[in-house]
Write a protein that binds this DNA or RNA. Structure first.
Length: 155
DNA sequence: GCCAACGTTGGC
DNA sequence: GCCAACGTTGGC
């Protein structure tokens, strides 16, 4: 899928695994565990300084919770080599890694969660990849307009 | 817990 | 390379 010159991104996380509050505490996190090739390819296009929308999925309150930025571009995801990790991939070796992850830096938690229903109701977001039927990717590009719209909703 | 949608695997 | 079976995601 083409993603030329995309400068904004969105990552999904199950807050039971890793929430915006965990992120606020840690300040910085290696975005390990993504095991989907399309998502991986998007991550490999992430450049330091680019903005990332933080989204809570698969939970009671689904929606956007805050912002991050890319701290470091992709490096091999260490969990793929760790047999004890839930993200272990027996087909990956340090010589030929399969999975990569960027380092994300915490920017801020929004004063309120922007619910998925509100995103769906927003005309300016009608073409957002996140909202596409059947969309399950946990890493997605976001357009400049979509990003600005979301920042507006957060106020 | 249900179910739609999608990705991956593996037999052929 | 096809495609059925299976596993996972994720909203509700």
């Amino acid at each position: 899928m083409a993603a030329p010159n995309t400068n904004y991104w969105l990552v999904k996380t199950d807050p039971d695994d890793y929430s915006i509050d965990d992120f606020a505490r840690d300040k910085s996190v290696a975005w390990v565990g993504v095991r989907n090739y399309q998502a991986r390819n998007f991550m490999q296009n992430m450049k330091p300084g680019e903005a990332v929308i933080f989204y809570h999925s698969a939970c009671e309150a689904v929606g956007i919770t805050g912002l991050a930025r890319i701290k470091r571009a992709c490096a091999p995801d260490k969990t793929q080599f760790d047999a004890k990790s839930q993200y272990y991939d027996p087909k990956a070796t340090p010589e030929t890694p399969r999975w990569f992850c960027p380092e994300l830096e915490f920017v801020r938690k929004f004063h309120r969660l922007i619910p998925l229903a509100e995103l769906r109701a927003e005309k300016a977001l009608s073409k957002m990849l996140l909202l596409k039927r059947g969309s399950r990717l946990s890493v997605l590009p976001v357009t400049t307009n979509e990003f600005d719209t979301i920042q507006g909703l957060a106020k």
